[in-house]
């Protein structure tokens, strides 16, 4: 039981929460980077390798694209369906191979990335699927390579939707990072668990909830703002052409 009236209760709480916050941001940040680097191409491949899509003949072979498509769909579905707590345990040998240990904040990045990649890949898939096929046709008519199509047309034109998908992914990584804390991964989850649950301090629970809520809000607001900036779909009133042409 923690003594609320102890003179150093709040300073210690703040210190513990701050440490948890830094660990959470570290885990989430690195896992997010890994997720983008792997999940974005994965999502694009998921759409592109479908029949009559923009990568339907990888290396000139329709069969190769179809095979890649089936494999990726299988992997993504597998990753999405295994409960995180089980995934974390199942990944222990892999984590140990990559990081050297399976305990601690850095090691937690591995299962976090593995769970977030298929999640984000589906988000990317949805965004890219929404793109006007006319844009792909226009790029093809200009003689674009597949790389040019992806880098100059698909990604920039879906940037808004990708950002919104990314902010949902961040929220989900933060969510899972709390679970990592319960098994010794550090972060805000561990703070809430070891002080709030095991030592019955409601104050810790409340503070951790508020901090996580603020992080999620900030991420959502920033992503929404950036997505709107990127869309260029709403003309600003200043530069809109007048409906009636001025007399000449």
């Amino acid at each position: 039981m923690i003594d609320y009236s102890a003179p150093d209760f709040w300073p210690i709480l703040i210190q513990n929460v701050l440490q948890g916050l830094v660990q959470t941001l570290y885990m989430t940040g690195v896992a997010l980077l890994v997720t983008i680097v792997i999940g974005l191409p994965l999502g694009i491949l998921l759409v592109g390798t479908e029949r009559r899509s923009f990568l339907e003949r990888i290396g000139g072979s329709r069969g190769l694209s179809a095979t890649i498509n089936r494999i990726l769909n299988f992997v993504v579905n597998l990753g999405r369906s295994v409960p995180f707590i089980i995934l974390m345990i199942a990944l222990i040998p892999f984590t140990r191979l990559v990081i050297g240990t399976f305990i601690g904040t850095t090691a937690a990045i591995v299962p976090l990335s593995v769970v977030a990649i298929p999640f984000f890949a589906r988000m990317v898939e949805i965004a890219v699927r929404e793109i006007d096929p006319g844009l792909i046709e226009a790029a093809d008519s200009l003689g674009a390579t597949r790389w040019q199509l992806v880098s100059k047309v698909l990604v920039p034109e879906t940037a808004g939707a990708l950002l919104l998908g990314l902010s949902t992914t961040v929220t989900s990584i933060i969510n899972f990072s709390a679970m990592v804390g319960v098994v010794g991964g550090g972060g805000l989850g561990q703070v809430a668990y070891s002080y709030g649950y095991q030592r019955y301090s409601t104050a810790y629970i409340v503070v951790v909830i508020i901090v996580i809520f603020v992080i999620v809000m900030v991420v959502q607001i920033l992503a929404g703002w950036a997505a709107r900036r990127l869309a260029h779909r709403i003309p600003s009133t200043k530069s809109r052409t007048p409906l009636v042409a001025p007399p000449t």
């Binding site: 006319g134 844009l135 046709e137 226009a138 200009l142 003689g143 034109e157 260029h232």
Partner: peptide, 21 residues
């Protein structure tokens, strides 16, 4: 074919312009 397409311009009914550019 990509090189040949540089010599063949195409315009579309729905314009097909990039909204972000």
């Amino acid at each position: 074919l990509r090189a040949a397409r540089h010599d063949i311009g195409m315009v579309f009914q729905q314009f097909n312009l990039l909204q972000g550019r």
